[in-house]
Nucleic acid binder design. Structure first.
Lengths: 332, 332
DNA sequence: GTGTGGGGTGATAGCGATTACATGACTCAT
DNA sequence: ATGAGTCATGTAATCGCTATCACCCCACAC
């Protein structure tokens, strides 16, 4: 079923059918009606591939994320999608699972699709890939990828500010031995997340930290916490790189008969919905995923419309959220 | 950057470049090397739209789900994606948020994309849409959509068997007043999920059930539980349509100072990873998302390869999972 | 020497849209 | 009546690729 058949049935030219399909230029009301009738009768659905090929422009934007399983990423995606839809764009997502190989093929795929814009919300990103991307001439927005770069819009969160509030709070409660639960992908944002922790820790006298890492999942958080509790002296507080892993840690502590926060305090990061529904509710740091999503979409659409929008860097400030998973260090 | 430019640079015809790209027929080693060199030098990425348009076949399969936020759907998606990748296919997902309007536009979009196959893992599905889909000649697999239909492969779960085990267990523990937490989309699978509950309840003497529904989210579960506790006699057990809502219910009970399972028992459904990480860990029913995902992909790929694969119905049996959120009815 | 067959490559006709550009039919002021 | 200006529509080139067919060249058998 194609344009030509519709045109034939409506006794018009393909150009006219295209016109009514795109609401472009003027078509006589009676003609339009005939065309629409033909379209419906034939159950015609325009071929998107032919469309973008002929039109030279694609109405879809691509989004690459590290781990859709983590609601942090999903929340951003959802905002982007809703904004994109409002502007008449589709969005296709790709998951990297923190694997470079997946990232590479996802990027190639997006370039192959000639997406109107690409949002990369991933931790890992090699310079060669960035180059490949910028060469492709596709508008790109990164979230939190490594150092600032020219020709790229980068949205980042001031993790240092967030983690400072956490460490400061724990310190004031008497905690001196911290455990840090991270995940294996110790690059990009994880770096952007890990380094601030180490920096913050270093600025307090007598504060120690030990790190354990695993996958960015509930199970991973549990295993990392287990590792933390197994080797060496037990920390009085466990700081987690994100809420999901913190919930995993919570589970491990419970299993080992440790009470939170009486025996061990736990903190998360992101303020994902779940952090409020787990038990005990997590003390965490709020990262405004909706703001991030809006910024991504706005920037992408602006770039794909006009040709000259300056690339820039946007920094977002996180907020401390105090809940029930933190308390005074034991014996104090 | 297109085929022609690559061909020109490698001093061959476009046909030969295409041959190299597709590993089709024989190309002299030296020629292939020249072409590959040109491709790399020009940073050429084949245009996917032109490809599928010219080739007449798309290497992507579409998947429509009701609510990606619910890990139940995500788990299925993940399996499908991984199977699809293994077979050299991409998958694009669309979210309906249980809204018919979204479903319609997603289906149209998928048809427009000329996907090689479509998996519909949604609750709502009007006959007209199903017709539109079958007319489009795209291989389709449904998960749990209404009554069995011809010309459509349908994968379904024997909810009755699952819920029977739950109700039976609660009944044996002395529970007679049940609350049921569902979600607003009371169609399709929700029907497939709700009706069995009512049927099961009806088969026990003296068993009562009251229903409350809200959104399919943590928050929704909480609100539904709140409604259940507010009106009328307090149930001794709350049966939830899925784990996510159950975790929401857990939160509400805690907030109201009710202990689980001492004061109120709670059950989930799906056996999502979270059900094991929340507190208390949920008694639930396991639905094998991986099996579902495998079946979907297998069926879709089979259909898109050969032309004559019979449509059929597959029924999956769920399993009861006993954990810590259920106990004897209070005062017994 | 001539026929046969196959490996390697080029020319080119689509695929299904969009989009100049051209055209034809009217209206209307001059 | 005539030329200009609109409005509505048709014609056909084009997008970037795949796939068919034709072709050339050379080895090898008879």
């Amino acid at each position: 079923m194609n344009l030509e058949q519709v045109a034939h049935r409506a006794k018009v030219s393909t150009a006219t059918v295209s016109r009514v399909l795109n609401n472009a230029s003027v078509v006589k009301t009676s003609t339009r009606a005939r065309v629409i009738k033909a379209i419906e009768e034939l159950k015609y659905h325009p071929n998107l591939h032919a469309r973008t090929l002929a039109g030279g422009k694609s109405r879809t934007i691509g989004m690459i994320v590290s781990n859709m399983e983590n609601p942090f990423f999903f929340d951003i995606y959802k905002t982007v999608e809703s904004d994109a839809h409002a502007a008449g764009f589709e969005v296709v997502v790709a998951n990297t699972d923190y694997r470079t190989e997946q990232l590479v093929s996802s990027i190639r795929l997006m370039i192959g699709r000639r997406v109107a814009g690409l949002a990369a919300v991933v931790s890992e990103m090699e310079p060669a890939l960035i180059e490949e991307l910028t060469d492709s001439n596709i508008p790109v927005v990164f979230y939190d990828v490594g150092a600032p770069r020219q020709n790229i819009t980068n949205i980042r969160v001031n993790y240092r500010r967030g983690i400072d509030k956490v460490i400061d709070y724990l310190y004031s409660l008497g905690h001196r031995k911290l455990g840090f639960v991270g995940h294996h992908a110790m690059l990009g944002p994880i770096n952007a997340r890990v380094k601030p922790v180490l920096d913050a820790v270093a600025s307090y006298p007598g504060l120690e930290v030990r790190t354990a890492a695993d996958a960015d999942t509930l199970e991973g958080g549990r295993l990392a916490a287990r590792a933390l509790l197994a080797n060496g002296e037990q920390p009085t507080a466990i700081v987690c790189v994100n809420d999901i892993m913190a919930v995993g840690a919570l589970r491990e502590l419970r299993e080992q008969g440790l009470r939170v926060p009486q025996d061990v305090s736990v903190t998360g990061f992101d303020n994902v919905k779940l952090s409020e529904f787990c038990y005990p509710a997590l003390t965490t740091v709020h990262i405004p995923r909706d703001t991030i999503g809006h910024l991504i979409c706005e920037s992408l659409l602006a770039k794909s419309d006009k040709t000259a929008v300056a690339d820039h860097e946007m920094v977002i400030d996180p907020e401390f959220v105090l809940r029930d998973s933190t308390g005074p260090a034991p014996g104090r």
